[in-house]
Design a protein around this nucleic acid. Structure first.
Length: 355
DNA sequence: CAACCGTGGCT
DNA sequence: TAGCCAAGGTT
């Protein structure tokens, strides 16, 4: 297929079918960047309200840079992949301190920023000023693999080279912004992962997958995620109407988010076993009152199935129990403002805020 | 560089 | 139900 023909036909389709999305009505690299980070591995319907919240709370990169990380994470709460929010804040501060508050818009400059990889750099550079770089995301892999019959494994290491070469060859000289958005939009609403409606597709006459009936086989993707089972036992320590929480850190899930005292076991256990395995729990149960035991929550992540149970513990007045490192007492109002995982937030909503 | 990082919707 | 996956990036 002639490359000009492909781009022209795609843009024509886009002009007829594109959705009206707020980040498409701007050339401001700051707004485009916000939308791109929010939309990484995230559906438009899920990211849309977060985009609105972020541009309202942080109209400029200076506003975002001046915020506390905790505030940024709190706004990000519920969207997942929280390193995106931490990197977002780091990058905003870097733009203010090292770029004079002017958000970079060239591919090579953008690549230097935290949380911006090859896709996001290409998206911001092309959307903001038509820089001639091809975007390569899940949509582009799918569209190119089907239309041109490319059977390279998109999870393999050759994928970026093979599809990147094709994507770059197809790039038009003009309207790069429109073209890049068009190929992604086409993948999102016409050339969909599930059974696409190929009888109504503008590329049905030229599409390799349509001709060979290989739509469901493409793109080829080899990797299967293996799911790890985890068992969380949370202890909510209450003293004088305040509750002990701590910030999670390290490389585990929910880094930067707040939760309670946690003991993790290889299966769900009762209190006597927990006390035997955990000296703090043992000491705690001797000097306090168990005031509540939650149902078991099953929390599903891409790589993990977490079963969690929450025990509510009243610390007796005059108890000599000292909180383990990092735990501090917070009022319910303060807890509302802390960034929390959806698991913890679901528990709090059920047992504190909506009861 | 393979593994890891969330959540919610769909089949 | 179990699996897939959605505008990826980092380590």
């Amino acid at each position: 297929m002639n490359t000009d023909f492909f781009a022209h036909k795609l843009i024509s389709w886009y002009n007829r079918h594109k959705r009206d999305l707020p980040w498409r009505n701007t050339r401001n690299p700051y707004f485009i960047w916000l939308s791109e980070i929010i939309l990484q591995q995230t559906r438009v319907v899920q990211g849309l309200p977060y985009y609105q919240k972020f541009i309202e709370n942080f109209p400029t990169v200076q506003d975002l840079a001046a915020a506390d990380e905790k505030e940024v994470l709190r706004l990000w709460q519920g969207l997942g992949y929280y390193s995106r929010a931490r990197n977002l804040h780091t990058t905003a501060k870097m733009v203010v301190s090292e770029f004079g508050g002017v958000f970079p818009d060239t591919y090579n400059e953008l690549l230097k920023l935290k949380g911006i990889g090859s896709y996001t750099a290409a998206a911001i550079a092309s959307f903001s000023h038509d820089e001639k770089v091809a975007v390569l995301d899940g949509n582009v892999y799918r569209v190119l693999s089907r239309v041109f019959g490319v059977e390279t494994d998109i999870a393999g290491k050759d994928a970026k080279k093979v599809f990147g070469k094709l994507a770059t060859e197809l790039l038009p000289d003009q309207q790069v912004s429109t073209y890049n958005q068009a190929i992604m939009e086409f993948g999102a609403i016409q050339c969909t992962p599930g059974l696409p409606q190929c009888m109504f597709c503008t590329f049905s006459p030229e599409c390799s997958a349509n001709e060979l009936g290989k739509q469901s086989m493409l793109p080829v993707k080899s990797k299967k995620v293996k799911v790890k089972e985890r068992f969380f036992h949370y202890f909510i320590l209450e003293k004088e109407g305040r509750f002990a929480m701590k910030e999670r850190n390290g490389k585990d899930v929910w880094s930067g988010m707040y939760d309670f005292y946690l003991t993790e076991q290889e299966s769900m256990q009762d209190l006597s076993v927990l006390a035997g395995n955990d000296t703090f729990i043992d000491a705690l149960l001797r000097e306090s009152t168990i005031s509540g035991e939650s149902e078991k929550y099953l929390h599903i992540l891409t790589h993990q199935r977490i079963t969690a149970q929450f025990w509510h513990i009243q610390i007796n007045p005059g108890s000599k129990i000292e909180l383990p490192e990092n735990l501090k007492y917070y009022s319910l109002n303060e807890i509302d403002d802390l960034p929390k995982s959806t698991l913890v937030n679901n528990y709090l909503k059920q047992y504190f805020f909506e009861k």
